[in-house]
Design a protein around this nucleic acid. Structure first.
Lengths: 362, 362
DNA sequence: ATGAAAGCGCTAACAG
DNA sequence: CTGTTAGCGCTTTCAT
């Protein structure tokens, strides 16, 4: 464990001091320090990294020179030499939502303490951009990658993995791809939610599906159907509609479509909190009351679900915990501790019942 | 303009191919390519970067070798040599909110097209962490920094600027610090909002202030007071309260405090949409109707303001435009075009009147 | 206990 | 037109 890795806490700029007086502008290098202290660059390196013993007098002279010059190491150079960048790539569809923001922030904060930085890439749900982002990260020599992939074919990810770069799939599973995963148990979540609605007396339950299938949305849809059937209720494809996006408006129009198609619907399940909020708005605009006429359940547990009017019943996920698990697994891979078997970490979400669900009317 | 800078579009991994057969695991280097193609490394470099003419036969052999080895350049090495990292630091208090998420995403996407990457650091509104983050970014040799600072004293930022690293202040101003800024005209925004409330007949207008002062919140408070006085209304410090945080709950308790203190209040202005949402919830819980009894105005224009119930009247900011301006200014600084005078770019927000504000009752 | 020197992978003079 | 070579700033043998 070197001290002077990418250590945020180890670096201190000479407050207010200017760079080496000799060469204006240029940041001081280890060479400048060596010259000023009258020692070799090897010695400077060793006092900074504490990798071998250096006598007190020399140590003092080096530290003095470092202070006077306001020297701090050039990490890219160091990293080139050590073949490690202390940088990890974080690839996601979009940062424009509280949930992913919280996850990203939490992971960043944990990794920062371990001297790692995060390069974030948004793919906008676009395979091509995702591919480019991964190529760039590879070329930047990131030490690892965390990804919520959009692609359904895992060949590029497998390739990266084969190159020896740790990859963690976040909130997504790619069938047949043996790669570390941190995911949410949506089967449990959806089961709890649909059961909750059925026990409230609802029989016609609408399902707002994702624009296009992916592991997690498929899990939700299959479970929805299964729970329905377990209760002897018919699965009606007319009660399922795909939102055409990931924003509020898509939820609004999806809800309207669903209720125009089948006005007997008394409850709605949305794959995403944002979609659920949009759906509530659609219902209100149609003159329905939530939850008096129609109940709504979302998924994710965005902070706003506890402040909205009405507060949203949702499948809540502990994002801080998810971030901790992801970072923990990542550190294991990065430091090479722990066994090397592919890990599949799953988080159990919790149905939080609030004001948007109520008994079936009539 | 080199082609093979950090060019996402220029890099292609040899789909499915493994690394150099000779040295298992190790990624192929320019040397491997040179050997395989039977040319010098300079030639390889030149066909990749198109910096000098290379004959067709050699070009073909190089490209062939690149394909066969699945070679792509080691950017850190390249960057060390060129003294440029194609990386910019993005320092913010928190990523856990739709607004900043949208801004971050938009900036990232624009910069990515120009082959730059973003390292994001969250400071949690903590001066010390912010300082550490900046030191790390400096050591990582980022080409520039975009920051929404928490610190009120600009000495470290001034120091960085003096080192020749472009800095852009986002949504904040530090008095006396001559540094590029992209900010929002909160004076206009607040003026529009308070005027709107007064013209609706409101006379007792509560103001939910930020936990601690900063350029933008000060602007809002001062303008609030000023508009009040312009209309001959008394500024009452009892109608101002500081939220104790940046989440929904802080808004809720702030609203309750305000109304317990002065039940004659019929309108509320919150410095932040999130706070406004929290406040609405507080009012509902106290039995008030929004906007029948009390009107609420927020600030930021989070997407959710157009989907919430009731939809929130807010001071809306065009974040995409803000991202474009920020990235544009950044690119100017990075490429050294445009004049070098310190720029102060300001965005004019727009009051969007929706359902959370209405005429003063009674 | 310390220094000299060889690279990490790449670009850019400098030579032909 | 192409190759040789000297670094970028740093760590780490290998000597002494």
């Amino acid at each position: 464990m070197t001290m002077f890795t990418n250590g945020a806490d180890d670096i201190a700029l000479g407050g207010g001091r200017r760079a080496a007086p000799g060469k204006e502008g240029r940041a001081p290098t280890i060479k400048d320090v060596a010259k000023k202290a009258g020692v070799s660059i090897a010695t400077v390196s060793h006092v900074l990294n504490k990798k071998r013993f250096v006598s007190d007098p020399l140590t003092d002279r080096v530290n003095e020179a470092v202070r006077e010059l306001g020297y701090y190491p050039n990490l890219p150079a160091k990293n080139l030499r050590e073949n490690k960048t202390y940088t990890v790539g974080f690839v996601i569809p979009s940062l424009a939502n509280e949930t992913i923001g919280i996850l990203a922030e939490s992971i960043q904060k944990i990794l920062f303490r371990r001297h790692y930085n995060l390069i974030i890439c948004n793919t906008s749900y676009d395979d091509r951009i995702e591919r480019e982002a991964l190529n760039t990260l590879l070329a930047k020599k990131v030490d690892a990658i965390i990804i919520t992939p959009t692609c359904r074919d895992g060949s590029q990810l497998a390739e990266i993995q084969r190159m020896g770069i740790p990859i963690i799939l976040s909130d997504r599973v790619i069938p047949g791809l043996p790669v570390d995963t941190v995911r949410i148990d949506y089967v449990k979540g959806t089961r709890d939610a649909i059961t909750h609605l059925i026990e409230l007396g609802h029989r016609q339950i609408g399902f707002i599906d994702r624009k296009f299938d992916q592991s997690h949305s498929l899990e939700k849809k299959v479970t929805y159907k299964q729970v329905l059937e377990e209760y002897g209720l018919a699965f009606d494809t007319g009660n399922v509609v795909r939102a055409h996006g990931f924003d509020y408006a898509s939820g609004t129009s999806a809800a309207k479509t669903l209720l125009e198609r089948n006005p007997r619907i008394t409850a709605l399940f949305a794959f995403f909190d944002i979609t659920a909020f949009g759906a509530m708005r659609g219902l209100i605009e149609m003159g329905y009351g939530v939850p008096q006429d129609i109940s709504v359940v979302g998924c994710d547990g965005m902070p706003f679900t506890s402040a909205s009017i009405p507060r949203l019943t949702t499948i809540w996920v502990d994002l801080k915990k998810m971030a901790a698990m992801t970072s923990g697994l990542l550190m294991e891979r990065l430091e090479g501790v722990g066994d090397s078997k592919t890990k599949d970490l799953v988080i159990s979400p919790r149905l939080v019942i609030r004001d948007s669900t109520g008994p079936c009317p009539g």
